[in-house]
Design a protein around this nucleic acid. Structure first.
Length: 702
DNA sequence: GAGCACTGC
């Protein structure tokens, strides 16, 4: 074992259930408990294992499919499970390998047949692949009995009874029907991830269930599914719902901690990788968790360099970086089998923790660090910082080593350090701007949004900051002591956008530039279309010159999009111009969706025909809360709070000194950076919001 | 003067 890291003897545990002391016994005091033996039966285990977009194949032998379903460990509990679920309003299910089977069991037993059974997922690919798989198992065409709904893609019909959908999509549906009348049963899967949308859905679904009961309508059954044991909160929240344990198949994983704390986790990771590399058979792949692109690219290069000079008899090494902004074709390489005699070493962000599942991983090296966003409601500032993972996250990483067979996990921290990690990751709802969430809840006509029944309540300051932001955008009014949406607010809620971007679109007809604003907002609402490989920086700069606008990033991006469209945009063009084609395609889809919404609202859609000033005026009028001015000493400060800020190095204005800018995002990394800037006239801002600036200037002087 | 974890509508 790596000497410098100083690993003591291993500990064994079973991954999906957390620490061993709790894995095999159920906490006392449960009303209903079910335990299944691990390791029984064949078949696929019911969990998605294929890479994104891989097509799960239908078995040519239908009987075989049915036999496979019967062989799943969960099948033994089917009768007992159904007997309980039939009579319950709500239940919490723990364990793995159940997402494909539970909805089928319910349907086959005639539970929830009066309407649709919904299964929500945090991610699109999961909703699509699960629906595909279940429709195969039912031997029906996808979109008939079993279908899915995700943004831009609705594969359902009047026959659909089992519907997989993203939780964000179900939340959208709740805006037009907050009682969710289409559904008899809602299964909230991957609840342990506590994504923003899942957390809001908890509240919306609970309210719908209660209201339907009061009105004597079709009852709504709610099942919460979690892969981890920390479910007390779920059970309490859903009125003490019973917890059912379903132990799935899992493989033992040995864990090694370091003897000493590691001050340099990158060096420790490097040492561990090469220790494993020199000892283990080449077919055993390694997955390393680091925090970000730069770190990962640097470590990849170092690994490749060292691997060139290893002694004879050592396997070759195939080093593969993995992070979200990596072009799709390069991401796919992690799924390919390495050539004979090569070991795959995948160096990844936490994208490999949940979003991407790679088969064949035998070793996990966990640095215990993650880059994550925090939000400060006082300043409205988002801080992106490297920090310790939570225990839950560490278990999740460890589990990645035991998906097909037993595995080994090296934790580059001591056991004492691990014990001091936070138990759970802070739910997203407590670390992000809540303006969108509040707008959506108000659009659902939920009575007291300020006291909404969240499972993990955000602080009152946090909610108040979101309300204040919506007020500034003109979305709210106080009527009869209640907060309600203005007509503007209702229109804003129709767009799948941050409220300030929805406002930008709604203001654009006044400036006769809706065509351009639709493009700009679409560009801002997806990940950057610009691909910046650090090793080819000079090349990127010279290619990008032709698009650059001295008026800022918004207009530069608009130029890239226009050129892409005018040259009949294809992947070849994207590659030559360092444009991420996947994101570019997405921009076109988003734009079309936003345009449709405008048309439904009977908004006039006109172009400014080359007049860029009107576009900048429109941005100034909608983003007036996010502005900064040049100070006498050459630095920048925000107009409202005089927070010192700097132009982000990715901006086309990085080397320029415009007097006044609007930005779309403030991000604190090593400094407080403004991202996506547009040059504006200070006068336009005062014109846009005279009250706001008068008040701000006064407080600033005091 | 020098940099951006991950989803989703």
């Amino acid at each position: 074992m790596p000497e410098e890291a100083g690993f003591p003897p291993a500990k064994k545990f079973r991954p999906s259930a957390g620490p061993p002391s709790r894995a095999r016994s159920c906490p006392p005091g449960r009303r209903a408990v079910m335990l299944l033996a691990a390791g029984a039966g064949g078949g696929g285990g019911g969990r998605r294992q294929q890479p994104p977009l891989a097509q799960p194949s239908a078995s040519p032998y239908p009987e075989a499919v049915e036999q496979q379903r019967r062989n799943l460990p969960i099948f033994q509990a089917r009768g007992q499970l159904l007997a309980q679920l039939r009579n319950l309003d709500s239940a919490v299910l723990i364990g793995s390998g159940k997402t494909t089977q539970i909805p089928q069991y319910l349907y086959e037993a005639g539970i929830g047949r009066q309407a649709i059974i919904a299964v929500t997922q945090p991610r699109r690919v999961a909703a699509i692949s699960l629906a595909t798989r279940v429709s195969d198992e039912k031997r029906t065409e996808l979109g008939k009995l079993v279908g899915y709904t995700v943004r831009f893609d609705d594969v359902t019909s009047d026959d659909t009874k089992i519907k997989f959908l993203t939780d964000g999509m179900l939340l959208r549906e709740a805006i037009s029907d907050c009682l969710l009348r289409k559904y008899s049963c809602i299964i909230l899967d991957e609840a342990h991830e506590r994504t923003l949308h899942t957390d809001v859905l908890f509240g919306v679904v609970k309210a719908a269930q209660k209201r339907r009961k009061e009105l004597g309508k079709l009852p709504l059954k709610v099942l919460v599914m979690s892969a981890t044991m920390d479910v007390d909160l779920f059970s309490q929240y859903f009125n003490g719902a019973p917890v059912l344990y379903l132990e799935g198949r899992q493989h033992p994983i040995q864990i090694f901690y370091t003897k000493q704390p590691q001050h340099d986790y990158l060096h420790a990771a490097l040492v561990s990788v090469f220790q494993i590399h020199q000892e283990a058979p080449s077919s055993h792949d390694i997955l390393v968790f680091l925090t970000g692109q730069e770190e990962i690219e640097a470590m990849s290069k170092t690994c490749r360099d060292i691997a060139k000079h290893l002694p004879d008899g050592c396997p070759s090494m195939l080093v593969l970086p993995l992070y979200a902004s990596l072009p799709y074709a390069q991401q796919l390489r992690v799924f390919q089998r390495a050539p004979k005699g090569y070991r795959k070493v995948i160096i990844s962000t936490n994208i490999a923790e949940t979003s991407i599942t790679i088969t064949g991983i035998k070793y996990v090296v966990d640095t215990g660090m993650v880059k994550a966003k925090k939000y400060n409601p006082d300043s409205g500032l988002e801080v992106l910082a490297v920090q310790r993972v939570s225990k839950t996250q560490a278990w999740q990483r460890t589990g990645r080593a035991g998906r097909e067979d037993s595995g080994i996990c090296y934790r580059l921290y001591t056991e004492d350090e691990f014990e001091k990690f936070e138990k759970m990751t802070v739910p997203e709802i407590q670390r992000c701007n809540l303006a969108s969430v509040m707008l959506q809840l108000l659009a659902m006509k939920i009575p007291n949004v300020l006291t909404f029944d969240f499972m993990s309540k955000p602080s009152p300051d946090h909610i108040q900051a979101a309300i204040a932001q919506l007020e500034l955008l003109g979305a709210l009014e106080h009527r009869d002591g209640q907060l309600t949406l203005t007509p503007m607010g209702r229109k804003m809620a129709a767009f799948p956008l941050e409220p300030k971007f929805a406002k930008t679109i709604l203001l654009s007809p006044k400036f006769h530039c809706t065509e351009e604003i639709l493009t700009i907002v679409a560009l801002l609402s997806v990940d950057s279309i610009l691909y910046n490989p650090p090793s080819r920086r000079d090349e990127v700069q010279s290619v990008r010159k032709k698009f650059v606008s001295s008026e800022g990033d918004h207009l530069t991006l608009l130029n890239v999009y226009r050129t892409f469209k005018n040259t009949g945009g294809n992947k070849e063009w994207c590659k030559e111009n360092f444009v991420n084609s996947k994101n570019m395609m997405l921009v076109a889809e988003v734009r079309a969706q936003l345009r449709d919404i405008c048309i439904k609202m009977s908004m006039p859609i006109v172009s400014s025909r080359g007049d860029t000033e009107s576009i900048r005026r429109c941005l100034a009028h909608s983003l007036f809360t996010s502005t900064a001015e040049l100070q006498p000493d050459g630095s920048y400060a925000t107009t409202d709070t005089h927070q010192p800020v700097a132009i982000h190095p990715s901006s086309v204005l990085f080397h320029c000194k415009p007097a006044c800018v609007v930005y779309t995002e403030l991000l604190f990394t090593s400094k407080c950076y403004m991202r996506d800037l547009c040059v504006v006239d200070a006068e336009w801002l005062y014109e846009a919001a005279p009250d706001f600036f008068r008040k701000k200037l006064r407080t600033a002087r005091n």
